[in-house]
Design a protein around this nucleic acid. Structure first.
Lengths: 110, 110
DNA sequence: ATAGTTAATCGCAAATATACGATAAATAAT
DNA sequence: ATTATTTATCGTATATTTGCGATTAACTAT
């Protein structure tokens, strides 16, 4: 890695959309989000009961979703209640919507 | 990895959405897709001229987009013309649309 | 104070992703 | 036949992701 990509300056929007996409890019995380949207919110332990994965693994997926901004964790000791971050979820929806809207304006060749 | 996640059986839809998301999870690939949607189609060389990345790196990103089903490569020697795979793109649009539609049905807690 | 509960974090291993330069393949042009 | 053009693939290095069990941290309840 000599030219190294990390320093290309993408637009904010592109970076953000990539970040959201990456977070959505694992089936377990999609399931967590679906679970969250059905239940309003949930505790880590709820997910441990549902998914055939170690508690530490689930905790890690939650961390990634949180770092991507898609969920929030409210400490409620000794539990932590996770909810979808509505503002960012809306932002994600808007970004994906734009991505899928902008194309095929002038498709002619194939 | 003893319990190993690979064998959890997610639904087809979940797997597919994760696959699409993962492919979209890198800024360079988003730029390629945007470029593609503006230009209808393009050759690998066009992208090499636009992105500050090695030809082999770009080729690899194209391969991933192709493997995810988002684009097609039509060999037109010695060039290869890449276009968005409209059917799968539409499928992706539908899956993301569903993902962002289904939630907040019953948000009450936070 | 002690024990119990819950969830994050640490340390580790294996797999995957990202980037590069160099090489190979496939065809067109000379 | 040789050369040029274009793109894929190979080999390699490094970074990140994914998973686990064990431990730690933070608070409750006894």
């Amino acid at each position: 890695m000599s030219k190294t990509l990390q320093h290309i300056d993408y637009t904010e929007e592109t970076e953000l959309l990539a970040r959201f996409s990456k977070a959505l890019g694992h089936p377990t995380r999609l399931i967590i989000l679906k679970y969250l949207s059905n239940q309003s919110c949930c505790y880590t332990g709820d997910l441990v009961g549902v998914l055939p994965l170690a508690q530490s693994t689930i905790s890690q997926h939650l961390k990634e979703l949180k770092e991507a901004g898609l969920i929030d964790g409210e400490v409620n000791p000794p539990k932590v209640r996770y909810c979808i971050n509505q503002a960012n979820w809306e932002k994600a929806r808007a970004l994906f919507s734009t991505l899928f809207k902008e194309d095929f304006k002038n498709f002619s060749c194939c």
